[in-house]
């Protein structure tokens, strides 16, 4: 009978491994975006900025001239299960929860937190009508955004007429973020969907939506560098806008990826406000782009003044960008590149 070897090595490894797992658990549930911070301010035409991080992170400072668009700082999210939705079910990764409207929106809210966008209100169909009417009455449309991912607006704000509440609110400066289906093609009543004729003209003044079945883009949009500057990811152009077909009297900004003239993201001016359409059925890439667009404060007249990137490692990095001029300037700072962990927007 051979003498038994000591099992101390196994015990030590077991205890160490369990300790690693438990320490990891604490790290997972105590880590926060407050490990990061950013500041920016304009002195004359010189932008000073400061970025801090625990750990090593790439950062980007994107300075925009937004024309007449002043951005918004509060967001309504439309969600009403008593009204029908009109979006396609999508495949998700193995083990992932079905990416339905509720789960998508929950994640949007969770993702907007580290992007320093906190003023978020869920509204059902009735509350939406009240909220938009309230904005119109208080002249507060210009500070408000509305996110609709159900693929259809409720009849409380949209019935296919040019004088519907949604259009008054947009004209007054509201920002509508839309995805999930062709914008305005139908409106929802509690009984079902109602088709609208001429819906594209209502929203854009021309037929410009992708109804052709072109789904996937393989090229980046030319003419601006927002695709890289904002680390945009979704390359689906289903339901998307062809910006070139939008009438000249409406400013538009096409960004992301393009196929057949359609862009994965298009922001189109509507009166003092705008309509932002993200192409494609629900996807994680699309959701990432959505929160990036909302938190960046981009508008249909936005253009890049300057982009500066760098790395901050366990400390603070300061920098200065000269020659920053424009009519409605903003500095959008984010950390993590294509894996953003922290965003902050500064109106200058």
């Amino acid at each position: 009978m051979t003498e038994r070897k000591s099992d101390k090595p196994a015990v030590i490894i077991a205890v160490a491994l369990l300790a690693i797992i438990l320490i990891g658990e604490v790290i997972v549930y105590t880590s926060d975006y407050t490990d990061y911070s950013a500041e920016a301010g304009l002195e004359g035409d010189s932008l000073g900025y400061q970025v801090s991080a625990d750990g090593s992170k790439t950062y980007s400072v994107v300075v925009n001239d937004n024309g007449t668009y002043d951005g918004m700082d509060r967001l309504y999210i439309y969600f009403d299960e008593s009204y029908p939705a009109n979006y396609e079910d999508v495949d998700v990764s193995i083990g992932a929860q079905a990416l339905d409207q509720r789960y998508y929106l929950e994640q949007v809210v969770n993702l907007l937190k580290p992007r320093n966008f906190h003023d978020i209100t869920y509204v059902d169909a009735e509350q939406l009508a009240d909220a938009l009417a309230g904005d119109l009455a208080s002249d507060g449309c210009g500070t408000a955004g509305l996110l609709v991912i159900s693929g259809v607006l409720p009849d409380t704000v949209y019935t296919g007429n040019a004088d519907d509440t949604i259009f008054q609110w947009l004209s007054g400066g509201g920002s509508l973020y839309w995805l999930g289906n062709l914008i305005g093609e139908c409106y929802a009543t509690t009984d079902g969907l109602q088709h609208v004729d001429g819906y594209q003209e209502l929203f854009f003044g021309a037929e410009c939506l992708n109804t052709e079945g072109v789904d996937t883009a393989y090229s980046e949009v030319d003419g601006n560098d927002y695709t890289h500057a904002l680390a945009l990811q979704s390359n689906s152009v289903k339901y998307a806008v062809d910006g070139d077909r939008v009438p000249d009297d409406r400013a538009h900004l096409s960004i992301g990826f393009t196929e057949g003239g359609y862009s994965s993201i298009t922001l189109v001016q509507y009166g003092s406000g705008m309509v932002c359409v993200l192409g494609g059925d629900y996807s994680n890439y699309q959701r990432n782009d959505l929160v990036q667009i909302i938190s960046s404060g981009l508008g249909p007249q936005s253009s890049i003044v300057s982009v500066e990137t760098g790395t901050v490692t366990n400390g603070t990095v300061s920098g200065r960008i000269e020659g920053v001029t424009g009519s409605s300037l903003s500095a959008f700072i984010y950390l993590g590149g294509y894996y953003p962990v922290y965003n902050k927007l500064f109106w200058l």
Partner: peptide
């Protein structure tokens, strides 16, 4: 790192 737990975001 952005403050979401394991299952808050896909």
């Amino acid at each position: 790192q952005s403050g979401n737990g394991l299952y808050d975001v896909s």
